[in-house]
Structures are given as structure tokens and as C-alpha cells.
Amino acid sequence: MSSPIVKTTIQSCVLNATSNLIAQFITAYKANAPYTINWVPVFQFVLFNAISNPPNFLWYNRSPFQPSPLVLTASYRQSFLESTFPSNYLVPSASAIHAASENDEKELDREEKTHSILESKLHIQNTLIKFLLDQTIGATLNTLLFSLAFAGFRGEGYADAIATAQEEFWPMVRAGWTLWPFVSLLNFAVVKSVEGRALVGSLSGLLWGIYLSLLKG
């Protein structure tokens, strides 16, 4: 069975190839031109995601102390951000507190056996810290890497690539702030299941990939 990092990278590559194909269709539709697929940008987007997804996965989805992008547990294990700033903490459940106050040992035993003696609470401070790190350090590095990578694909030299990255940085960051802050908060604070977070991240990534493809079209 493939490791989570391989599965996530493959999924990212497929979604970004799809995003670029959709963006090409939108461009052709707006220009009232025939839809002819240009496979060069598709390959470039796939290559960029094959390179960039593993470090993003390690940032979001794994602890640096474990051997080997969207803060997962279970099959994805603990993420760097999640293990450093846990989203949730455990407290005695209301029913367990009530049973303890009544010295109801039978009820306490039942809750312990059914793993309901504790309940999870959102750690607001940690969630805000993760959100800020994601939207500052994470956003900055990913934006710069994207611009530099595609400048390299175009054959630009070092100086031209740096100039391109500087020119594109703030427009891309501002565009990202219209989407990713909401996605981050949703995944950090609301969505609890691995599958749910993966779905939210995938759908958001598809939309973002279309925007980037149109930007580079």
C-alpha cells in the first residue's frame, strides 16, 4: 500500500492537471477559439506539484520526529503544526462529572469502557497560532516557490526569476487570502475527520489551481 505522502502527491498532481485543463477550456471559451489542449503547462503544473507537495505534506501533515500538505491524524498521523499546537484538548465530559459528583461508579465504568468519559474541546489559542503560521510562513514560501519554479520553466535567469517573483508576490498572496484563510479555519477548527479535511482541501485546491493556470496562461 502506498504511503500517505505518495497518495497525497499523486492526488495533488491529478487535481492540478485537471485545473489546468479546465483553465485552458475557460480561456478558449472566452476567446471564442477552438479548445486545443496544450500539454506543456499541464506537465509543468504536474512537475511543480510533484516537487512541492512532499515538503508541504511534511509541514502540514507529519511531525519532523517521525520517519518517512491539508492537519490530519489517523492514516496521516500527526502533523507538524498539529503536534506542536494541538487543535483540541480533552476534558471530563458533563455526564462523567455528574456521575463523579453522585459517586456513581457504575456509570463511570460504563463511560470509561465506551471512551465517553472525556470529550474534546477546541483549543482556540493553538488554532489561531496555526492559522497565522499557515497564512504567513506557509503562504509566503509557497507563493515564492511557485513563481520561481515557473520562471525557471520559462528559462528565465536568476535575476529575472527574482524580479518575476517580486512582481507576482502580492497579487498572488492577496488572491490567496480570498480563499485559503477560510479553508484553513474550516479544517483547523471545524472539520474533524481525515476524509472531510481531504475533501475540503482537494476542492479548494482545484479552484486555486484553475486561478493559477489562468494567471500563467
Results as ranks from 00 to 15, higher is better:
82 E>K: 02
102 E>W: 00
85 F>E: 01
159 A>W: 09
176 G>L: 00
173 V>M: 11
184 S>W: 00
137 I>Y: 11
91 V>F: 07
97 I>N: 14
92 P>D: 12
181 P>Y: 02
147 S>R: 05
157 G>E: 09
182 F>V: 13
169 F>P: 01
147 S>V: 03
92 P>R: 13
174 R>I: 12
112 E>K: 15
99 A>F: 03
85 F>T: 04
100 A>K: 13
135 Q>S: 06
148 L>G: 02
162 I>L: 14
151 A>P: 03
186 L>D: 04
185 L>F: 15
159 A>I: 13
160 D>I: 10
160 D>G: 03
85 F>D: 03
152 G>M: 07
173 V>E: 01
150 F>K: 03
155 G>L: 12
97 I>A: 13
100 A>N: 13
103 N>P: 04
124 I>Y: 11
127 T>Q: 07
183 V>Q: 02
101 S>L: 15
160 D>M: 07
96 A>I: 06
184 S>V: 06
113 K>D: 12
183 V>G: 01
116 S>E: 14
108 L>F: 11
170 W>R: 10
86 P>I: 08
143 T>W: 02
193 S>H: 07
186 L>Y: 03
173 V>L: 11
160 D>K: 13
123 H>R: 10
138 G>D: 05
135 Q>C: 04
162 I>C: 09
133 L>Q: 04
170 W>Q: 12
113 K>Q: 12
109 D>A: 15
159 A>S: 15
165 A>L: 09
137 I>F: 13
118 L>C: 07
123 H>Q: 08
131 F>R: 00
124 I>E: 03
158 Y>F: 14
167 E>H: 10
108 L>W: 10
171 P>W: 05
172 M>S: 06
109 D>E: 15
82 E>I: 02
125 Q>M: 03
83 S>P: 02
164 T>N: 11
161 A>L: 08
110 R>V: 07
149 A>P: 00
117 I>L: 14
93 S>V: 09
175 A>W: 03
136 T>K: 01
103 N>E: 13
138 G>F: 03
122 L>N: 05
187 N>Q: 12
151 A>C: 13
105 E>A: 15
96 A>P: 04
188 F>E: 00
139 A>I: 07
124 I>T: 15
161 A>V: 05
175 A>S: 11
